[in-house]
């Protein structure tokens, strides 16, 4: 099962990366990042079957931090929406050069 879990985790991570690189909506980008983090969680859980509980402790840490990051991230997205009435990255182009 270990190899399959790691392969699935790699596939999920890649989907997340492709999503971040191709999509232009800030919320969807953020969801893709969460997908990447959860792919990593899967790896940790799978590996901890081999090495003991450390991997599972790591997963709890990752989930806690992801929640904190979501709180801050969504607040930032709301802040940008108030300025531009859009969360499309094509419209967010004041800083260039």
């Amino acid at each position: 099962m270990l190899a399959e879990s790691l392969a699935l985790s790699a596939v999920l991570f890649t989907i997340g990366v492709i999503g971040v690189l191709t999509r232009r909506n800030a919320i969807i980008l953020f969801m893709c990042v969460e997908l990447m983090l959860n792919a990593v969680n899967l790896s940790f859980v799978a590996l901890s079957k081999l090495y003991g509980a450390t991997g599972q402790v790591f997963v709890v840490m990752v989930m806690t931090v992801a929640a904190a990051e979501a709180a801050v991230g969504l607040a930032i997205i709301i802040a940008i929406f108030r300025h531009r009435q859009s969360v499309d990255l094509e419209d967010i182009n004041l800083l260039k050069g």
């Binding site: 953020f30 990042v33 990051e69 991230g73 930032i76 997205i77 802040a79 800083l95």
Partner: peptide
């Protein structure tokens, strides 16, 4: 400032 924050956040989380 909001735009800087959004860019930093998205790329930082990535």
């Amino acid at each position: 400032s909001a735009e800087a924050s959004l860019k930093y956040f998205l790329l930082g989380a990535f």
